[in-house]
């Protein structure tokens, strides 16, 4: 599904990614761990097209297509989704307005007919139920006045509505207490399927107790320095990143 080959990227004049290689197949969950500054969030940003980063070498193929050539909205249309580390507040735009615009933009990209207000609401209400989202969510402005936990759950809710093929979760556990983290993890686990892949970026092992990965990669100074199974996360927890 996703093939990253020798990816180099920099922010301003600073090299952050220095040759990432990673293959992700449908149904797999890959955890990417690493200390602060190792390039985890940069990788998420490069994959989704944030313009703060410039790619200097390497390529990224998503279902055989060159992902790096696409605008962020095209990547979303192709089925790439980023759950933000810091979800953005958009006062003045309601969640329902935003989500419908989003769903229909993605459907349009895929050549599917747009959803009218009624069918959209039906889809959304059903997903809200599964994720235990509060009733008034749709009327509220996007992320405005949300608690940290609510923001992260809203990311997972959007993910559920958009049904992407590749989900990238950028430090989704950061700033969450254990209950909020469990709620988010339950939401993510409900979306696991044999056709959908996930990249879970995290600093701490604790999220991986709840979202159990198939592979764990350790990122250090812009390179993947170690790859293993879910046990690797426990080792890191015990010995720290410097124990490598």
């Amino acid at each position: 599904m996703l093939t990253i080959h020798n990816l180099h990227a920099k922010v301003a004049d600073k090299d952050i990614l220095r040759g990432i290689n990673l293959t992700v197949n449908p149904g797999e969950v890959h955890a990417i761990m690493g200390p602060n500054g190792s390039g985890k969030s940069t990788l998420a940003g490069v994959l989704t097209g944030r313009d703060a980063y410039s790619v200097t070498d390497g390529e990224v193929l998503f279902e055989g297509k060159n992902l790096l050539d696409m605008a962020p909205e095209e990547r979303a249309g192709e089925g790439v989704f980023l759950a933000f580390q810091y979800p953005v507040e958009i006062p003045g735009v309601s969640n329902s307005y935003f989500l419908r615009a989003s769903v229909n933009a993605v459907r349009k990209h895929r050549g599917e007919p747009e959803l009218d207000a009624a069918s959209f609401l039906k889809v959304v209400k059903q997903k809200m139920k599964v994720l235990h989202m509060p009733e008034d969510l749709l009327k509220r402005p996007v992320n405005e006045g949300f608690s940290g936990g609510e923001k992260k759950r809203n990311e997972i809710f959007q993910m559920a509505v958009l049904e992407p093929k590749l989900c990238i979760l950028d430090e989704t556990d950061s700033g969450l207490d254990i209950d909020a983290m469990k709620a988010v993890a339950d939401g993510v686990n409900a979306l696991r399927s044999k056709d959908r892949a996930m990249i879970v970026i995290t600093h701490y092992q604790r999220l991986l107790d709840h979202i159990v990965p198939d592979f764990v990669h350790v990122l250090s100074q812009g390179r993947i320095v170690k790859t293993g199974g879910k046990g690797l996360a426990l080792e890191l927890e015990a010995h720290g990143y410097s124990g490598n």
Binding site: F84, V88, A101
Partner: peptide, 23 residues
């Protein structure tokens, strides 16, 4: 970027945020 990452094209995202401002 947040809107675009959700599939909303740049021009539409600009209009949406403009509307949010005027809302």
């Amino acid at each position: 970027f947040y809107l675009r990452s959700r599939g909303i094209p740049l021009e539409q995202a600009r209009r949406l945020l403009t509307f949010a401002f005027a809302n």
